[in-house]
């Protein structure tokens, strides 16, 4: 579905991606992990054509996405930070995106799922962070596209909404979709992900199943495995047990 070859990207002097090659060939949930600034969001934005690669190619269903736009019809994207035009109401925003994108979206079940009915007439500028994130989720998931890219979907959500999101993602997975998720919540990964991609300093450091990751690093939990990776990497963490704590700090996000 998506093939990334030798992707390089830098912003000014800062090299964010240093030759990432990835293939997404089978449906399921892939968690993209990595400390802050490891290039997760840049990778996602490159797939969407929002950030333009310095080097390398990205193919979507075999076609180079360079200069393309129609392929985005097949991708539903949840941005990391829910930023909307402040003047619009939720209802107007939903209608606008539907009008711009066309097709046959179905927002109703999602609105009910996240209990957004009372907020439909409110201006987006007046919504709380969690409610914004719910609107963000409805916008991203109201289309039934084969690829779903979620950048930190759980941020700001209360436990009930998080549970419902997980349930929803399971259903989407059942439909045979490709789902890419970045997150810092390890329990979310252990519960949901079929596969993990670990980005470290602009490289793919590890890719494989959860079990494989744990075995490779001889760890009993995902958190420990990640800690080992960070200890191995030349991040300056000493290997006297502080690594795990540092990894937790890094993964929870500053």
């Amino acid at each position: 579905m998506i093939t990334i070859e030798n992707l390089h990207k830098s912003f000014g002097k800062q090299e964010v991606l240093k030759g990432v090659s990835l293939k997404f060939q089978s449906p399921g949930i892939t968690a993209i992990l990595g400390p802050n600034g490891s290039g997760k969001t840049t990778l996602i934005k490159s797939i969407l054509g929002m950030a333009l690669p310095g080097q390398g190619t990205i193919r979507f269903q075999g076609q180079d996405i360079k200069g393309g736009w129609a392929y985005r019809r097949q991708i539903d994207y949840l941005p990391q930070i829910a930023r909307f035009p402040e003047n619009l109401t939720v209802q107007e925003l939903l209608r606008m995106i539907q009008d711009l994108r066309g097709g046959q979206p179905d927002a109703e079940p999602l609105i009910r799922l996240f209990a957004l009915q009372p907020h439909l007439g409110n201006r987006l500028g007046n919504l709380s962070g969690g409610t914004r994130q719910k609107v963000n989720l409805v916008l991203a998931m109201m289309y039934d596209s084969p690829v779903l890219i979620l950048d930190e979907p759980t941020s700001g959500l209360d436990p009930v909404a998080t549970q419902r999101l997980k349930e929803l993602l399971r259903q989407e997975k059942e439909k045979g979709k490709y789902i890419l998720v970045t997150t810092h919540i390890m329990s979310f990964v252990e519960e949901m992900a079929d596969e993990v991609v670990f980005l470290l300093e602009g490289h793919v450091h590890f890719r494989g199943g959860l079990q494989e990751l744990k075995e490779k690093y001889g760890a009993s939990s995902l958190e420990r495995a990640i800690a080992r990776i960070l200890e191995e990497g030349e991040l300056g963490f000493s290997s006297n047990g502080h690594g795990e704590k540092a990894a937790q700090l890094v993964l929870r996000g500053a």
Partner: peptide
Amino acid sequence: NSREFTELLLAQPIRR
């Protein structure tokens, strides 16, 4: 002022 709107649009299937 319309940066947010623009970012929203960029992820949609619309020519830049």
